[in-house]
Design a protein around this nucleic acid. Structure first.
Length: 654
RNA sequence: GCUCCCUUAGCUCAGUCGGUAGAGCGUCUCCAUGGUAAGGAGAAGGUCGACAGUUCAAUUCUGUCAGGGAGCUCCA
């Protein structure tokens, strides 16, 4: 009997009978692996477990605990869902159904424009579980392109994918289904097959730990002008336990939702009378904002910035000169007509700062000139894009514009990055990722030399600060390259906050000049720069990052003092006055509630310190300290010692 | 803006197969004076998002609008 020999990842070799598959190999090694294996990697290619192995192949078995295995499970689950949809809604036509982080989706169309709702989702999920029980094999077939065009002739989206790829758009993401001139597809049953490059799990019985999450609309190929398909998102895992853990994580993330915490902690609200995307700041939110803004002003003052203020509206001529009415009109609020002129609410602060620069003749000795403003802007965000504080229609930027000579750019960028990271670190962020966006392919303004030197300056600044970054080739705006900085929050989500954007355009449009040492007039370069970006959004991110547990320097109430009984109320108020005199934000809760209840209320409000004072404390000038997040209560802490402790917390911004 | 879903007391939600409504928390009052995550009792509080339509009757069914959520698109 002939045999074949394969090499495993550890270098060991196994002999198997002729015709053996990767699945046979797994079974040969052990029943546990046979059960766990999902696909195999043979000579660096991902394949199904039922493909016969060639003699001398390098074989590695991929299990569900590998990232790649999980990816396969999600991909196969997308197929499973498509089959269930087709069973329940004959005539459905499918577009694409890829695995994504934590799950998968599938885009499709139903006959007669039928749309699905949450109940349909339950039915589809139930049908999927039946198909899992049926344990259908995933069978792979390869056919020629003409055969594929015939097989999928009733599937317009699949046809389009085949045609797009065969007509030469070979770099397309869709190329996966096609290798050379063949198309592969998988058949699960007599009634369901799907074009797909695979690989897949051996059979549907290997799936089952999934949950369909939501149905949404999605444009075909992401293009607003093309038909909108239905998309079902689901999550899928290799075990029931993992699925459950994921669902618990989602619940925990939902508990941090800044819109929910804004309500629970009485920070901000969105009265419908104001309109979408417009918030009012309640006292507890407003005090945090004041601290953020005070901090920002102080840092800018130390950083050598000049302060500025500008009005909320300006005549159309300003926006014509700046170009905003040409390329940003859709994002602007409509104008108010007055005295024969059109006044637009400002979507940006830059033109005002440009006018301040332009208000007199500038010498090279004044550069770099750095103008800073907490400037409130209004932008017409699409109604579907508005989202709590994260995406508002009115918001305040910590905006500054640096006017510099070409020669100063590199140094200035480096110091800006320094400044930015210092601010972000003070707000508790420790992980950063940057993106460098370079000159776009299409038309752009500015000569090659300035693009090259500015881009090199940005890159040098990133490297000097040891920041991880990716380059988005051609991703810059037409008027200059930029750096965007993302932070990771406490649960690992990335938020884009800060931007440093070069601008070669506005100085041209406004004909900005400075007098150089040789007496010649030269054009400065402008740098737009926001650190928090939008104060609103930054606050939203902080709420979620800290889950409402603001560090003492930001907490609206730093300590709440609870007298044990009425007899201790005067003492409590005395301690509160002393702490307030030391500069802290203090409340006294002498409400008609039992102590346990009042402690709970303080905890629910996420106050850093709940202080309890009773007979012992009155006698000894002490407080009982119940710190947030700490189980044990500390008794007999002197008021002085507590004052020092709180001061240290505030100073450490922790 | 597009697709789907949602809107009932200050908040979180029940409920009415069409006959105008309930709970918990919160608020107020009273009792309880309590040493560390919910003491007890009572009261007030709702044009059931708005406007039309169907109906003897609409909070409930239908439509339009407004607001909100998820996703898509967008974020120069």
């Amino acid at each position: 009997m002939s045999a074949l020999t394969v090499t495993l990842p550890d270098g060991s070799q196994r002999s198997l009978p002729e015709g053996s598959t990767a699945g046979d190999l797994a079974a040969e090694i052990g029943p546990g692996l046979a059960k766990a294996a999902v696909i195999a990697i043979v000579d660096d290619k991902e394949i199904d477990l039922d493909v016969p192995l060639a003699d001398g192949a390098d074989v590695s078995l991929v299990t569900a605990s590998d990232e790649l295995g999980l990816h396969t499970i999600r991909h196969s689950t997308a197929h499973l869902m498509a089959q269930a949809i087709l069973d329940l809604h004959p005539g459905a036509r499918f577009a694409i159904g890829p695995p994504i982080e934590h799950g998968f989706y599938y885009d499709f169309d139903l006959p007669d424009g039928k749309t699905l709702n949450d109940e349909d989702l339950e039915a589809i999920e139930a049908r999927m579980h039946e198909l899992v029980a049926a344990d259908q094999p995933f069978e792979r077939y390869e056919i020629s392109v003409p055969e594929a065009l015939d097989l999928f002739k009733d599937e317009p989206y699949k046809m389009e994918i085949i045609e797009a790829v065969t007509s030469g758009a070979a770099n397309s993401d869709d190329a996966g289904e096609l290798s050379g001139d063949t198309v592969s597809y998988y058949r699960n049953s007599d009634t369901f097959l799907d074009m797909c490059t695979g690989p897949h799990v051996p059979s549907t019985g290997r799936l089952g730990h999934f949950k369909l999450q939501r149905v949404a609309g999605a444009y075909w190929r992401g293009d607003e002008k093309r038909p909108q398909l239905q998309r079902i998102y689901g999550t899928a895992w290799s075990s029931k336990k993992e699925l459950k853990q994921h669902l618990v994580r989602l619940e925990e993330a939902a508990k941090r939702d800044h819109r929910r915490l804004a309500q629970e902690l009485d920070l901000v609200s969105w009265p419908t009378e104001l309109g979408p995307g417009l918030a009012v700041w309640h006292p507890k939110g407003a005090i945090i904002r004041k601290i953020m803004e005070d901090y920002s002003r102080q840092r800018h003052e130390e950083g050598g910035y000049d302060f500025a203020y500008s009005p909320h509206i300006a005549k159309s001529v300003l926006w014509e000169t700046s170009g905003h009415l040409d390329f940003y009109a859709d994002g602007m609020y409509p104008p108010m007509e007055m005295d024969g002129a059109s006044y637009y609410p400002k979507p940006m602060n830059c033109p005002f700062h440009v006018l301040i620069f332009k208000s007199g003749q500038r010498s090279y000795r004044e550069l770099p000139k750095k103008i800073f403003e907490l400037g409130t802007v209004y932008r017409y965000e699409l109604s579907g894009a508005v989202h709590g504080l994260m995406r508002s229609r009115g918001f305040t930027q910590d905006d500054s514009h640096v006017f510099a000579t070409r020669e100063q750019i590199a140094d200035e960028l480096s110091s800006l990055l320094d400044f930015m990271l210092g601010v972000l670190r003070d707000f508790g962020f420790t992980e950063f990722e940057a993106k460098l966006s370079t000159r776009p392919e299409e038309k752009s303004v500015g000569d090659d030399e300035i693009w090259d030197s500015a881009t090199a300056g940005l890159q040098a600044a990133l490297e000097a600060h040891g920041l991880d970054y990716v380059v988005d080739e051609g991703g810059g705006a037409f008027y200059g390259p930029k750096i965007d900085v993302d932070v990771r929050d406490a649960i690992g989500r990335a938020w884009q906050l800060s931007t440093i954007q070069l601008d070669f355009n506005l100085p041209e449009r406004f004909e900005l000049e400075y007098v150089a040492p040789d007496g010649e007039r030269k054009r400065p370069v402008m740098i737009h720069r926001a650190l928090m970006g939008s104060i609103e959004r930054f606050f939203g991110v902080l709420i979620e990052h800290y889950a409402g547990n603001f560090p003492a320097w930001l907490a609206p109430v730093q300590a709440r003092i609870l007298p044990v009984a009425e007899a201790h109320e005067d003492y409590a108020r005395g301690v509160a006055d002393r702490l307030r005199a030391a500069g802290f934000r203090i409340e006294v809760d002498a409400a008609n509630d039992p102590l346990g209840k009042r402690v709970r209320n303080g905890k629910v409000q996420k106050i850093p310190y709940v202080l309890v004072v009773g007979d012992d404390d009155m006698a000894n000038d002490t407080v009982g300290v119940n710190a947030r997040g700490v189980k044990d209560v500390e008794r007999d802490v002197t008021v002085d010692a507590f004052t020092e402790r709180l001061a240290a917390d505030v100073a450490a911004k922790s």
